[in-house]
């Protein structure tokens, strides 16, 4: 699969039974539809659902194409205090976090509903992008 941001071919990483596509060049992360469902099933990340149902955000950020279906992805705001701009496949193929975005998102989560979320998963998501920030 090609990275929607830099078109480099992505690798798949699996940790603690979670799997996601990762771009070694730009450290962006792609969650495909099945993985999101799994994640929502095991955690209470309702914010993601809310974000997916929110209207398309207006932004100057570059448009990206879905790596599975090739359609233009829609921008969605995720989170409240300092929102992250998600790229969401219009066909429900998955969603894309640019480098660092997922960290920004995860860091502001515990304020609201830390108890409801499985810590293992969050720590993984947080750790996965560590080298990119170093």
């Amino acid at each position: 699969m090609k990275c929607p941001a830099c078109h480099h071919s992505m690798i798949v990483i699996e940790y603690d039974k979670i799997e996601l596509d990762y771009c070694t060049e730009c450290s962006g992360i792609w969650f495909d539809a099945g993985e999101i469902e799994l994640l929502l099933d095991t955690t209470n990340l309702d914010v993601i659902n809310q974000s997916l149902q929110s209207p398309e955000a207006r932004t100057a950020e570059k448009e990206r194409r879905c790596p599975t279906c090739g359609k233009k992805m829609e921008k969605r705001k995720l989170g409240e205090s300092s929102p992250v701009l998600l790229d969401v496949c219009p066909n429900g193929g998955g969603l894309w976090f640019d480098s660092g975005e997922i960290n920004q998102f995860v860091q502001q989560l515990p304020e609201k509903d830390s108890g409801a979320i499985s810590n293992r998963i969050l720590s993984f998501i947080q750790n996965v992008v560590k080298p990119a920030n170093q």
Binding site: I11, I13, E14, D16, Y22, V128, K130, P131
Partner: peptide
């Protein structure tokens, strides 16, 4: 035909055949 690499930190890297780089850094432990 993906290549499976098991990193000592417990992360598993699955490298597609079209991946060109000769080395890959584990995003979890580096």
């Amino acid at each position: 035909n993906y290549i499976m690499l098991d990193c000592s930190c417990g992360t598993r890297l699955k490298i597609p055949p079209e991946f060109k780089n000769a080395i890959v850094r584990c995003p979890h432990c580096g």
